[in-house]
């Protein structure tokens, strides 16, 4: 039986640590996992933008090559665990909007960062508080967060842990 997990992202390499840790915790089971990467962004007010609305275009303009590389690395790492990986856009401000979104996608579990702060440049916003209020079971992931925002998109942020045992 496969389960569906929802992981919010801001399309910075460092935010993929949530996915890495989430998959790491569930890769022990034999279950397949459907991953939904959720990009939260405000819907445009301009009617011209709404006429030509396309989630693909929103995602395409926000994704950087480094992020794609990092995602490919994770896909290769958890090749057997990941059943499908989908990037989706979430617009909405209210609790129920998020609950509806999660329901529509059949989300079983949500993973959110603990100390990592989402980069909310442009029209994207941080969905963490919405997720916490929604009542859907969530799991907080924590790692050593880089302070320097400019470094967040470097590939090495995905390899951030020196083994403390040594």
């Amino acid at each position: 039986m496969s389960k569906t997990i929802l992981v919010p992202t801001d399309f910075h390499v460092e935010s993929l640590n949530i996915l890495k840790l989430a998959l790491g915790s569930s890769s022990n089971h034999t279950d397949k996992v459907n991953v939904i990467l959720m990009y939260s962004v405000d819907l445009s007010n301009s009617f011209q933008d709404l006429i030509f609305y396309s989630p693909q275009k929103i995602i395409g303009s926000a994704v950087k090559p480094e992020f794609q590389d990092a995602l490919a690395i994770l896909k290769n790492r958890f090749e057997k665990t990941i059943d499908a990986l989908l990037i989706d856009v979430f617009h909405g401000y209210s609790n129920s909007a998020f609950i509806n979104f999660a329901k529509a996608k059949n989300v079983d579990e949500v993973f959110i960062p603990k100390s990592y702060k989402f980069n909310t440049s442009g029209k994207s916003f941080c969905p963490v508080s919405l997720i916490k209020k929604s009542g859907i079971p969530f799991c907080e992931m924590d790692w050593e967060v880089k302070n320097n925002v400019s470094e967040r998109n470097q590939l090495e942020t995905l390899f951030n842990n020196l083994n403390p045992a040594l």
Partner: peptide, 21 residues
């Protein structure tokens, strides 16, 4: 001091990251 060597692969390249302190 500890030096970490990470190996990862994307779809068209192999990435080796060597970090020291």
């Amino acid at each position: 001091k500890p030096v970490s060597v990470s190996i990862a692969a994307s779809n068209n390249q192999v990435i080796v990251i060597i970090k020291d302190q």
